[in-house]
Nucleic acid binder design. Structure first.
Lengths: 258, 258
DNA sequence: CGCATATTTGACCCGGGTCAATCACCGTGG
DNA sequence: CCACGGTGATTGACCCGGGTCAAATATGCG
C-alpha cells in the first residue's frame, strides 16, 4: 500500500548470524564510521562492535541520565532524540536514520543528556566507546572519520539554531522536507516520495512549532501544489517551489529582478 | 572605572617570549585541552602550538569558507561565532572566552562554516589540526579530553536549541546572564559583577530576539531589581530571582505549593 | 566638539500560540 | 461486520508576545 519501501533487514534469520551485519557488507558503511577505511581496518572495527541491538517502535535506546558506555550506529529504522527540560517541554534534537551515529553528546560528562527513541522497529550497532578509543589510536583513518562525524553534528546543530532563530513556519517546513529528501537520496531511496516516520508533534518539536502550526503549514504546501500528502505518505511535486520557500521566498525576488 | 578587571596578558613583552604562553603556565589550562594531562604531556602539546596570535577587536579569526587548518584556544579576550544565512540574517552561535576551543565545526568538511570575530583585543593559541591528530594518537588522555570538548560543544548547542524552541524572551535573558556568570565563576572571576563584552544586538542574535526585545527585557530586569546595568557593566543583585525566571517562573509555583 | 553607532522607548501589528471542536484512522471486542 | 474508544491530525476563533517601524537619547571615538 505504502509507496515507500519499508527498510527491513536483509533476511534476518537469526540474531546470531553476523554475516549480513558486518560493516563491510552494510550498504550504509560509506555514511558511517567505516567510511574511507581499508578492508582489513573495517574488519577490526567489526570486531569491537558489541552486538546488533533491536529496538522496537517507541522503545528507548538510552535516556537522559543513563551512564555513557557506547555509541550507536543506526543500521536500519529511524530514531528521534528528545530533550526534556525541567518543565516537561520537549525539543526534538534530531531525526536519525541508517548510518547516523547516536550518543556523541554523552562523551563529555559520561552520561546521556537526551532520550533516543525508535520511531519504528529499528536496529543499531552498539560500539563500546572505550574500545573505539583504543582502535582510533591505531587506525588514523578511523580517527579522522570519527572527528568528522562529531564535527558534522556540531555543524548540523548550528544550522538548526539558525532556522530556529530566523525562519518562519513555512520556511522551516520546506527546509525540513528538503532535508529529509536529501538524506534519503544519499541513502539510495527516492527523494521525491517517502514516508514521514515521525508524528506531526515530533516535527513541531524539531522545528520549534506547535502541532497545529505544522498541520496548517503542511495544508498550505498541499494547497499550492508543492506536495501531496496522505497521512504520512509524502510526495514532493514541486521541489523548486520548496527551495524558494526554504530560502524565504528570496529567490522569487531575484527571479523577478533578473 | 569599570568594576571588572579587563583580562590582559601577563606583561606581554614580546610576541616571541614564549614563557608566559606555555600551556603549563596558562591559568586556564584546566578548562582547555591540557586538562588532566601530566606535565610532560602538556609540554608535548605546547610544542605543537604554532603560535599565539593576537586578534584585535572586530577582527576576524577565520570566516565562512576559509580552509580548515587549525583549532584555536582562546588565551584571553572574547570571541563570538557568527553564522550568516543567504539572506544576510545573522545568528550568533556562541560567545567564547579564555579556555574555549574554536573551529571544531570545520573539521567535518575542511572549511569553516561560521565567522569567529573578536569582541575585544584577544589572543588565541593556534593548534594545527594535523599535528594535534598525530599527538592524540600518542597521548590517550589528550584524545579523551579532545573528545570531551567536542561532545560538550554538541551538548551546549542542544541546550541552545532547547531555549530557542520554548523559552520566552525573559527566560532567555535570565538564562543568558546566569550562564555568563557561571562561566566567569569557573574562571575565577566575579560571578556577580562583570562586563558584557558583546553588544545588545549580538545578545539578540544569540538568543533569537531583536535588539529592541533585548533592551526591553534588560530594562525589566533592572526595574524589578534583579540586576544593575550601566551600559555594559552588569551587577547581578538577585541571583535567585534570575534563576526562577530562567526556569519560566516554575520555582515560584513550587514555592507556593511547598 | 560633532558625527556615527549603540541603546532605549513608544506605537502598532501580525504570525503563530492557545483553546476547543471536529474529523480520520485503527485496533479491539462483541 | 460494526460499534466504540483512543490517539493523531485538522480546522477554526481568538489573542498576545515580540517583531517592525520610527523617533529620541546616549555613548564613544576621532
Amino acid at each position: 500500500m505504502s509507496p515507500v519501501i519499508p527498510i527491513t533487514p536483509a533476511n534476518a534469520t537469526k540474531s546470531c548470524a553476523p554475516v549480513a551485519a558486518k560493516c563491510s557488507l552494510c550498504s550504509f558503511n560509506r555514511l558511517c564510521l567505516p567510511q574511507g577505511l581499508a578492508e582489513d581496518d573495517i574488519a577490526r572495527l567489526d570486531q569491537i562492535i558489541a552486538r546488533r541491538r533491536r529496538v522496537s517502535r517507541d522503545e528507548t535506546l538510552y535516556q537522559t541520565g543513563d551512564g555513557f558506555h557506547s555509541l550507536y550506529a543506526v543500521r536500519f529504522g529511524h530514531f528521534k532524540t528528545v530533550q526534556v527540560n525541567q518543565r516537561g517541554e520537549q525539543t526534538i534534537g534530531g531525526f536519525h536514520m541508517a548510518g547516523d551515529l547516536l550518543g556523541m553528546e554523552a562523551i563529555g560528562n559520561g552520561q546521556h543528556s537526551c532520550n533516543a527513541v525508535a520511531l519504528e522497529d529499528s536496529e543499531v550497532c552498539e560500539i563500546p566507546f572505550s574500545r573505539l578509543q583504543e582502535l582510533v589510536m591505531q587506525i588514523p583513518g578511523l580517527l579522522q572519520q570519527f572527528h568528522r562525524t562529531m564535527s558534522r553534528e556540531i555543524q548540523r546543530e548550528q544550522s538548526v539554531m539558525l532556522f530556529l532563530s530566523h525562519m518562519r513556519a513555512e520556511q522551516r517546513l520546506a527546509m525540513f522536507l528538503l532535508n529529509l529528501a536529501g538524506r534519503y537520496a544519499q541513502r539510495g531511496y527516492s527523494s521525491t516520495s517517502f514516508q514521514l516516520r515521525m508524528s506531526r508533534e515530533d516535527i513541531g518539536g524539531y522545528l520549534g512549532l506547535t502541532v497545529e502550526s505544522v498541520s496548517r503549514q503542511l495544508a498550505r504546501l498541499r494547497q499550492d501544489g508543492s506536495i501531496v500528502l496522505n497521512n504520512r505518505d509524502l510526495r514532493i511535486i514541486d521541489r523548486n517551489k520548496l527551495e524558494v520557500m526554504s530560502s524565504g521566498g528570496m529567490a522569487q525576488e531575484f527571479a523577478a529582478v533578473a
